Amino acid sequence: MIRASAPNKLILCGEHYVVYGAPAISIPTDSRNTVELEETNSDEIVLETNFGNGSISKDGEFSGQKVIECLHAVHKYVFSKSKNKKFTGFKAKFHHSGAPKGMGNSASAAAAFSVALCKLYGIKADKKFLFDATQAGEEISHGGLPSGIDAATVVEGRPQIFEKKFNPTKCVMKSVNLVLPHGTCFLVVDTFKNARDTTADQIQKFAVANKIEKPPDKLTSAIRNALFVEYEHIYKGVLAELKPNGNGARLGDLLNKNHELLRAAGVSTYEIEDARNIAICKNAYGAKLTGAGGRGGALLVYCKIRAAKSIVKGLSLGGFRSFETRIGTEGPKLEI
């Protein structure tokens, strides 16, 4: 058996804007998705996940639920790089970390799967290889070429400042050491009720709200830059406060302002706003959606450590599951 895992991620600021070239800050978390590969005597690959099942035939054809088709893309990429191209039948069982939508579950699962497949096919993979393999899956999950911020954060296993450059298109990533101001913490809230929107749907909704009719790489730099003028001031402020002696109240205010921009773009929901109001009423410094948003999206709450218990209780009474999360320190890895 081969077992591999990879971290989830949280975007502190910059979701959606990052697709158009704005800088974003993302962190890996201490929660991890895991996959177990066990070889079989069959001529197919069986995929079992918490979100659906599927299979890949010896001819490389995928069948199953669309939500996990991204795993087919990961296998296709890794297998194409193997030297002998010898197909191996196996069962892949994925174990979900419990992290809600918005915490990079698709990138985490893809990265863990990539590591396990490299072991299976005898490939010595560096971080660039794992990033590309993860992005292959993310392109299916996102309904188009994604920014790469999820894949970069998960694969590096360290906080990232991420920017997407154009003409030619490339991703610029910088690992940084980020620390929350003394006495503060993050909570993650799962706002799922009865339905989930896809990341692709939210990317399209953001584009429509901003009257964008072309892919990011087809826009002029002037149009792209105009999209995130207001956001860029927020980004600089957030980065300045992520230090031990940072101002928690100011950091919370900046996160609130980032959320207001995203809400105006139509990617928040009634549930996200409800959970956010509960957190703010319980004395959180700030709260914003994290990730693509939409139905079932995650909410990031920033608060004093001593206020966390009261906020979690209030959210629970409101019907929301929440938990404290820490900045992770490891990228994808083999467990056995």
Rank of each mutant, 00 (worst) to 15 (best):
Ala4Val: 03
Ala4Asn: 01
Lys9Val: 06
Ile11Tyr: 00
Val19Cys: 02
Val19Thr: 04
Ser26Cys: 12
Ser31Lys: 14
Asn33Arg: 02
Asn33Cys: 10
Asn33Asp: 14
Val35Leu: 06
Glu36Met: 13
Glu36Trp: 08
Thr40Met: 12
Gly54His: 03
Gly54Ser: 08
Asp59Val: 10
Glu61Ala: 12
Ile68Asn: 02
Leu71Tyr: 02
Ala73Ser: 13
Ala73Trp: 03
Val74Leu: 04
Val74Ile: 09
His75Phe: 15
His75Pro: 02
Lys76Gln: 14
Val78Ser: 03
Lys81Gly: 11
Lys83Glu: 14
Asn84Glu: 15
Lys85Tyr: 13
Lys85Pro: 06
Thr88Glu: 15
Ala99His: 02
Lys101Gly: 09
Lys101Ser: 15
Ala107Asn: 07
Ala110Arg: 03
Ala110Pro: 01
Ala112Phe: 01
Val115Phe: 02
Ala116Phe: 10
Gly122Phe: 11
Ile123Thr: 06
Leu130Cys: 04
Glu139Thr: 14
Gly144Asn: 01
Ala151Gln: 05
Pro159Thr: 06
Ile161Glu: 08
Lys165Ser: 10
Val172Lys: 15
Val172Gln: 15
Met173Val: 15
Lys174Asp: 11
Lys174Gly: 09
Pro181Ser: 09
His182Ala: 15
Cys185Gln: 10
Thr191Tyr: 06
Ala195Ile: 11
Ala200Gln: 07
Asp201Met: 11
Gln202Trp: 01
Ile203His: 04
Ile203Lys: 01
Ile203Gln: 03
Ile203Val: 15
Lys205Cys: 05
Ala209Trp: 03
Ile212Trp: 04
Glu213Lys: 10
Asp217Arg: 07
Leu219Asp: 01
Thr220Trp: 09
Asn225Leu: 11
Ala226Lys: 13
Ala226Phe: 08
Leu227Glu: 00
Phe228Lys: 03
Glu230His: 12
Tyr231His: 06
Tyr231Thr: 00
Lys236Arg: 14
Ala240Thr: 10
Asn245Gln: 12
Asn247Ser: 09
Leu251Ile: 06
Leu254Tyr: 01
Asn256Met: 13
Lys257Asp: 08
Leu261Met: 13
Arg263His: 13
Thr269Gly: 06
Tyr270Met: 10
Ile272Cys: 04
Ile272Glu: 00
Glu273Asn: 13
Asn283Arg: 12
Lys288Ala: 08
Gly291Arg: 02
Cys303His: 03
Arg306Leu: 11
Arg306Val: 10
Ala307Ile: 09
Ala307Leu: 11
Ala308Leu: 08
Lys309Asn: 12
Leu315Ser: 01
Leu315Lys: 05
Ser316Cys: 13
Leu317Thr: 12
Phe323Thr: 07
Glu330Thr: 15
Pro332Ser: 09
Glu335Asp: 11
